[in-house]
């Protein structure tokens, strides 16, 4: 949906308040996101190597248990009320890794707990994270089709 057009008065107000508003700390935010996101991936690498060394996974198959472990940890941190604090500090650094997906699922479910297990927790589980699955599946389907058609012709 297109943004509503601003009236000249609204446009003037927007210009006027610009110098009075707090500046977004772009560099600091980007640095914090880099550190937090990098650290989560580093832990992921450690977990992955753990599965390869002790459980006979290969580098290719270790991805699944690694992701599941990270999701478990992130869900627990959400339950203990810690992940939202990490999120305030790390921004995209804790949203982009798969732990952010787990946090979106768990936090939405926890928020609606007071409405019951079926209509509260279960129906709201994907309230925030559902968009990721929808866009992932749709784009994978479209690109998969394109690639399949191209392969048939080549």
């Amino acid at each position: 949906m297109a943004k509503k057009k601003l009236t000249p008065e609204q446009q003037a107000y927007k210009e006027k308040i610009k110098p009075l508003q707090p500046k977004t700390p772009y560099v600091l935010n980007a640095f914090k996101a880099f550190m937090v996101g990098g650290f989560i991936c580093l832990i992921g690498q450690g977990i992955s190597n753990f599965y390869i060394t002790f459980f006979n996974f290969t580098e290719k198959t270790a991805g699944n248990p690694t992701v599941a472990t990270l999701i478990l940890v992130a869900s627990l941190l959400t339950g203990f009320g810690v992940y939202d604090k990490i999120g305030q500090f790390g921004g995209a650094g804790s949203i982009v890794p798969v732990t952010g997906f787990a946090n979106a699922v768990t936090s939405a479910a926890l928020e609606h707990k007071s409405e019951g297990i079926v209509l509260g927790i279960a129906t709201n589980l994907f309230k925030l994270a559902g968009a990721v699955i929808v866009f992932g599946a749709v784009s994978a389907y479209v690109i998969g089709m394109l690639r399949y058609i191209i392969q048939q012709f080549l």
């Binding site: 977004t24 959400t78 939202d84 990490i86 921004g91 768990t106 939405a108 925030l128």
Partner: peptide, 17 residues
Amino acid sequence: ERQFRYPTEYGGQKPDS
């Protein structure tokens, strides 16, 4: 928070404003 924004445990980043 629930009414107007995100779940309380959601790790979104709020701006200084």
